[in-house]
Amino acid sequence: MVEHRPLAKLVAHLILCLGVAVVAFPVYLTFIASTHQPADIVNGTMGLLPGSMGLTHYIDALFVGTKQIKSTPVLQMMANSLVMALVIAFGKIAISIISAYAVVFFRFPLRMFFFWMIFVTLMLPVEVRIYPTYKVVADLGMLNSYAGLTIPLIASATATLLFRQFFLTIPDELVEAAKIDGAGPMKFFRDVVLPLSRTNIAALFVILFIYGWNQYLWPLLVTTDASMDTIVYGIRRMIVTSDANTDWHIVMATVMLAMLPPVLVVIAMQKLFVKGLVETEK
């Protein structure tokens, strides 16, 4: 199609630039603030250009944390978050790909019943079942542990559904050809289903990693020990509302650091991510 409408193009680009600015400006401001003296941030003389402190606040944040109110070093919090996000992402993928495989490729009694059971849990996110879930985790003695942070979040109907939809597009003949080729269910899963699901797994990994990284409510409940703080919740702990002063420069640096891993994951997996969501070729 030939399109030659310079004015329309210009307007479209202006709108897009505006959108980018709205999203990017606060991030930029955060970065600028993290390079200024704490006093400049608080009394508003900071300006829009990088300050004199360079990246020293990042070093402080990573290895020490805030000082006014003693916090966990950010490196420790990031490690906690990383463990949580990775365990949740891999756990969800592992569990849901197996259950989707069972629901699609096997005929067993009550198959549809189990499928609907999984489906119905979509209506029960953590927030809805938070009290019973907390009670179970507490009674099992999993408070303040990685297990308590991750296991209750691992079951996933969304990922199961996504894999189910994908598996349904695998032609029956492929399953039959594999049977004739002497591939049992496990072999078929490993040699055919897993490689074909590669892009779907990648797309899900990106979504689930960010989901795990951004968890706030659940860590708030199950961890009381500061050494178990995840970074998203840890930022909240750094901001003081009572008498003492907040170390805003450290908070700003922490916020920047908190954004990094999800951004890196998206950048690294972008190609596969897009492919996984749009791919139709079988």
Partner: peptide, 30 residues
């Protein structure tokens, strides 16, 4: 007997080739 134990080979209408395997691997898989 299961299909694999019958010592037969089948050619399907839509070919049913494994999309992620090379031609060589498609033939060698069985």
């Amino acid at each position: 007997l299961e299909p694999k134990d019958r010592d037969i080979a089948m050619v399907f209408q839509n070919y049913a080739l494994y999309p992620h395997m090379s031609v060589y691997d498609n033939m060698a898989y069985g």
